[in-house]
């Protein structure tokens, strides 16, 4: 705890006993949150003798090599590839569509409440039910489900409501006078979007992108019935949990977590960079 986390009560000097109780709750929560994940990352670096539990047996990259070379662990490389591509596709569509919908929801329009509830419905409907519905629909229409059609739509049905809800929070901090000022100075609507609205909302849009990417990359329930014959990575992991009992499973966990962390890092990093760059100009001047 930092020194600045001082008195619990503004009046007395010492911390109340509740502080220590809640501190303990918080620390236990964080341990519970991270300990299991960290233990599988550690166990994934065992050598060929390794098992699913501690103690650690040796230290090597054996299971990572195994993961990408052994046939018995399935098509990890292919599904990994598909998952990334799908996630990028979902991210781009989520950012664009959420941005437009966010713009629409700033003012009231006829039927906006209906659209809003439709969105909430799409968010809370059980994923497998939706996947089943999409699968049956494709079936009725005589179309083959695939990751870039039915699975893409299934994932968007959950990332878009999330994205629009984030846009609500982002837009609430957007002053409409900026838009009017731009119009007043002679900008066309498109110029206003490009030169004023987008740059100001950029950090919020990065947040939407982060949600879009990670929700898609880790999506399971909605994808299960809609991915068609080729698996995405979570589906691959799912089938591995049912038949692989080696640390290769943990190695896969480590790899996908690295991808997630790189994404989080990129997203948070670019938000920080946008804000830095804005502040940087003053430093340059000085």
């Amino acid at each position: 705890m930092s020194r600045s986390a001082t008195a619990g009560t503004p009046r007395s000097g010492g911390r109340p006993w509740t502080f220590y109780v809640l501190l303990a709750v918080f620390i236990l929560y964080v341990i519970g949150l991270y300990a299991p994940m960290i233990s599988i990352y550690i166990l994934s670096f065992q050598d060929v003798r390794g098992g699913l539990v501690f103690p650690m047996k040796g230290l090597s990259l054996h299971w990572f090599v195994d993961l990408f070379t052994q046939v018995r662990t399935g098509d990890v490389k292919g599904s990994f590839d598909r998952s990334i591509r799908l996630a990028v596709l979902v991210t781009v569509l989520t950012v664009v569509i959420s941005f437009l919908a966010g713009m629409a929801f700033r003012r009231r329009y006829f039927g906006d409440t209906a659209v809003f509830y439709l969105m909430i419905g799409s968010l809370v409907v059980p994923g497998l039910v939706l996947g089943l519905g999409i699968g049956l629909t494709f079936n009725f229409l005589g179309m083959r489900p695939s990751w870039y059609t039915s699975a893409l739509g299934a994932q968007l049905s959950c990332t878009l409501p999330f994205g629009v809800l984030i846009m609500f929070a982002v837009m609430s901090r957007f002053n409409t006078a900026w838009e009017e000022a731009s119009r007043d100075l002679g900008a066309s609507p498109l110029q206003t979007v490009w030169l004023v609205i987008l740059p100001i909302l950029l950090p919020g849009l990065v947040a939407v992108a982060l949600f879009g990417f990670t929700l898609s990359y880790d999506e399971f329930a909605r994808t299960l019935q809609t991915a068609g014959t080729l698996n995405t990575l979570p589906l691959e992991i799912w089938s591995m949990t049912l038949n692989v009992t080696s640390p290769a499973l943990y190695a896969l966990g480590t790899v996908t977590t690295i991808v997630s962390f790189v994404t989080i890092g990129l997203a948070l990093g670019s938000i920080v960079m946008i804000q830095r760059r804005r502040a940087q100009r003053i430093k340059n001047e000085a």
């Binding site: 002053n175 006078a177 900026w178 009017e180 000022a181 731009s182 119009r183 007043d184 100075l185 002679g186 004023v196 740059p199 100001i200 804005r278």
Partner: peptide, 20 residues
């Protein structure tokens, strides 16, 4: 008519300067 065509300009309450 849009503002430009009117040749008016507005100074907004709390100025609405573009923050970026």
């Amino acid at each position: 008519l849009p503002p430009v065509k009117r040749r008016t300009a507005m100074m907004f309450q709390s100025y609405a300067l573009f923050p970026h």
